[in-house]
Amino acid sequence: MLSKIERKDFFDLQLEGRALQIKKEDPDIARDPAALKEIEARQHEVMMTTYKAPGITRDI
């Protein structure tokens, strides 16, 4: 369902990040190095996008 959202805000990205973390903990995926690498790449992309996402106030 999250993949259908065109412009994700901070909270959508947090949900996706948590879903990816849960997916990594799945025993079948934990044994598949290719799947883990793909998930980690997406987690990195989500993290970088979260920084730029609307819907959060930063005190920098």
Rank of each mutant, 00 (worst) to 15 (best):
F11Q: 08
T57Y: 10
R58Q: 10
V46R: 02
R58G: 11
R42C: 01
Q14A: 14
D28E: 11
K37Q: 14
K24I: 10
R58M: 10
H44P: 02
E25Y: 06
V46N: 00
A41M: 06
A19Q: 06
A53K: 03
A41S: 07
H44E: 09
I5K: 03
P27T: 11
T57F: 12
L13E: 00
G17E: 03
K8L: 02
I60M: 11
D12I: 04
I39R: 00
T50D: 07
R31F: 11
F10G: 03
E25D: 09
A34T: 07
Q43R: 04
K23S: 05
A34D: 13
Q14Y: 08
A30N: 09
K23W: 10
I60T: 07
I56V: 12
L20A: 04
A34Y: 09
D12P: 01
P27D: 08
Y51S: 09
R7V: 13
I39M: 00
V46T: 06
K24W: 02
K24A: 06
A41K: 10
R18D: 13
A53I: 03
F10D: 03
Q43Y: 01
A30T: 09
A53G: 02
Y51H: 11
E25L: 13
I39L: 04
D59Q: 14
I60V: 11
R31G: 09
E40D: 13
A41F: 03
E38A: 11
I22Q: 15
E25M: 12
L15C: 13
M1N: 08
I29R: 01
A53M: 05
A34K: 09
G17L: 03
A53C: 04
P33Y: 13
L20Q: 03
E40A: 09
E6A: 14
M47G: 11
D9G: 08
M48T: 14
L36W: 01
R42Q: 07
R58A: 10
E25W: 07
E45L: 06
K37N: 14
V46H: 01
A53Y: 00
I56M: 13
R42T: 05
L2C: 06
I5P: 02
V46S: 01
H44F: 05
F10W: 10
P27N: 06
I22F: 12
K52I: 13
G55C: 06
R42N: 05
A35R: 04
I5L: 03
E6Y: 08
R18G: 08
K52R: 15
L2T: 02
M48W: 04
E40V: 05
Y51F: 14
L2E: 05
A19K: 02
D26P: 02
A30R: 15
E40R: 11
K52H: 15
E6G: 04
F10Y: 11
D32E: 08
T50R: 04
G17P: 02
V46P: 00
K24E: 15
E6H: 07
I60Q: 09
L2F: 07
G17T: 06
I29P: 01
T49Q: 14
H44V: 06
A41L: 05
G55N: 05
M1S: 10
K23T: 09
R31P: 08
K37D: 13
